[in-house]
């Protein structure tokens, strides 16, 4: 008997009914971080009797505004800037009694609001620990934030504080740069930095794509070993660079775990009405010694 695509589609329509519907409001960019976060959330949803819909908090602000009317059982929110209107909508959502889990950035605190993510201070400390592995006494560092990873950029003070808390006086100079959502502009930035600031000892990246582009620039300019790089993420190529000594190390968050934990927390809130108010999903430091 021929099994028709329609029949299989029809059977797909007859998917199992679940109890809860959670909405995730995430930035519009389609980086690997958010992809993994979505994967974690979907996997958690498929095993936890709930469904998830994803909404863009940037390109579809009306969706966030109307969230309080949409019948969601809970919301996972990645709000990386304290926009007034969005804070108001968030307040209205909380006012309607809809539980909200803030991911990575806790822009508002109050009853019904919970936080899950990475402590950016720890990220700064991790970068500092990697920098300590070098034999350079006085470090001239450039910290490159990225709009592709707004969570780190929004709490840049915490990152820098963590960094300074570890390096102390060994940090002689720390400058910051920001890359856009364009995945190619990092290359341009890296060439400019290396040409205009030859005294740079370490470049710190906060996005996997930026890391790969910058390493490529270092290799092209034959500056491997002269300028150290601390990357971000656990891409296989990044691991390979660490093994070869091209990269000093890499800071790894766990977006999958963040997404998974968010759904777990929302489910707990739906059933029990409470969950732990704070969940740090932690970071992992990849270095030549930890490989």
């Amino acid at each position: 008997m021929v099994k028709t695509p329609f029949l299989s589609k029809e059977s797909a329509d007859e998917v199992e009914e679940v109890k809860f519907h959670y909405a995730f409001f995430l930035p519009a960019e389609d980086s690997s971080f958010f992809s993994r976060l979505r994967e974690g959330a979907k996997d958690a949803a498929s095993s936890r009797d709930c469904s998830i819909s994803f909404h863009s908090i940037d390109s579809d602000p009306l969706s966030f505004e109307m969230a309080k009317y949409s019948g969601f059982d809970g919301i996972g929110l990645y709000l990386y800037e304290k926009d007034r209107s969005k804070l108001q909508y968030l307040s209205e959502i909380l006012g309607e009694g809809i539980p909200v889990v803030q991911i990575e950035n806790e822009v508002i605190q109050g009853p019904g609001s919970f936080f899950i993510g990475t402590n950016n201070f720890d990220i700064g400390k991790g970068i500092g620990q990697l920098a300590l592995d070098t034999s350079i006494d006085r470090l001239n560092m450039v910290l490159v934030y990225s709009k592709k990873n707004p969570g780190v950029m929004s709490d840049r003070n915490l990152v820098e504080m963590g960094l300074k808390s570890v390096l102390g006086d060994r940090l002689s100079a720390l400058s910051t740069e920001v890359t856009s959502l364009n995945p190619l502009d990092t290359g341009m930035l890296a060439y400019d930095l290396l040409k205009k600031k030859p005294s740079i000892d370490i470049i710190v990246l906060t996005d996997p794509n930026d890391t790969l582009m910058t390493v490529q620039a270092i290799i092209d300019m034959n500056l491997v070993g002269m300028v150290r790089i601390i990357g971000f993420g656990e891409h296989e190529t990044i691991k390979s660079y660490i093994e070869k000594g091209v990269l000093l190390g890499s800071i790894v968050r766990n977006p999958y775990r963040i997404g998974f934990s968010t759904v777990m927390a929302l489910k707990e809130l739906s059933i029990n009405g409470y969950t732990s108010a704070y969940a740090d999903t932690g970071i992992t430091i990849l270095s030549g010694t930890s490989q």
Binding site: A12, D13, V15, E16, E17, V18, K19, F20, H21, A45, S46, C50, S51, S53, M66, Y69, S70, G71, F72
Partner: peptide
């Protein structure tokens, strides 16, 4: 308003709640 993993069903559910509020 049943909840499933189907995107269309979820949007329809949203619409029904929005209509309620409307």
């Amino acid at each position: 308003r049943i909840i499933t993993s189907n995107d269309s069903d979820l949007i329809k559910r949203e619409i029904f709640f929005l209509l309620d509020n409307y």
